[in-house]
């Protein structure tokens, strides 16, 4: 078991030397290269992700700021439009009221004018009729029956006109 076997040492050195060469050239170097490449790619993607995150955060901040500004603005606009609308409403209402009052006024004036014109007209007609009746009475010798008829006629005529005039006044 413990017999000296120096020849075996030579064989060991040869095989071990071959193993070192083969492993170094075929396994270790390519493996190290592959591992380095993977580490590099992972590092790169981590860096890229970090960058993207920072970018996203920056954008988010920006959007938040913009959103706050826009919200304030929109509130302001809404407020302004509301006040404007209220103003407009009040104005329109006032305008409408004024207009309706004006129309009413004008209508009243018209009626007054019409009434006055109608009265004037009636008065003229009454005078004419009276004159006509007087003429008729004066022109013919009137019988009692005629006289009565004429008076009734005149009265009937007058009655309608005056009633209409009175109702309007």
């Amino acid at each position: 078991m413990l017999v000296p076997e120096p020849g075996l040492m030579i064989w060991t050195l040869i095989t071990f030397g071959v193993a070192v060469l083969v492993l170094t050239l075929l396994a270790f170097k390519p493996l190290q290269k592959a591992l380095d490449a993977r580490r590099q790619s992972i590092q790169d993607s981590v860096d890229a992700a970090e960058e993207a995150r920072a970018e996203a955060l920056r954008l988010l901040e920006e959007y938040k700021a913009t959103l706050a500004r826009v919200r304030g603005e929109s509130d302001e606009i809404l407020e302004r439009s509301r006040t404007t609308a209220e103003h407009a409403k009040a104005e329109i209402l006032a305008e409408a009221k004024a207009q309706s009052e004006r129309v009413l006024e004008r209508a009243h004036e018209q009626i007054e004018r019409d009434t006055r014109a109608a009265l004037r007209d009636i008065k003229g007609q009454i005078a004419e009729l009276t004159a006509l009746a007087t003429e008729k009475v004066a022109a013919a010798s009137l019988s009692a029956a005629d006289q009565q008829r004429l008076i009734d006629e005149a009265l009937a005529e007058l009655d309608v006109e005056s009633l209409g005039a009175e109702g309007r006044a």
């Binding site: 064989w11 060991t12 095989t15 071990f16 071959v18 193993a19 083969v22 492993l23 075929l26 396994a27 390519p30 493996l31």
Partner: peptide, 17 residues
Amino acid sequence: YLWLTAAVLIVFALLVR
């Protein structure tokens, strides 16, 4: 056995490659 060891290592190295 030494040769076998070297052979196994060479085979594994080739497989790795």
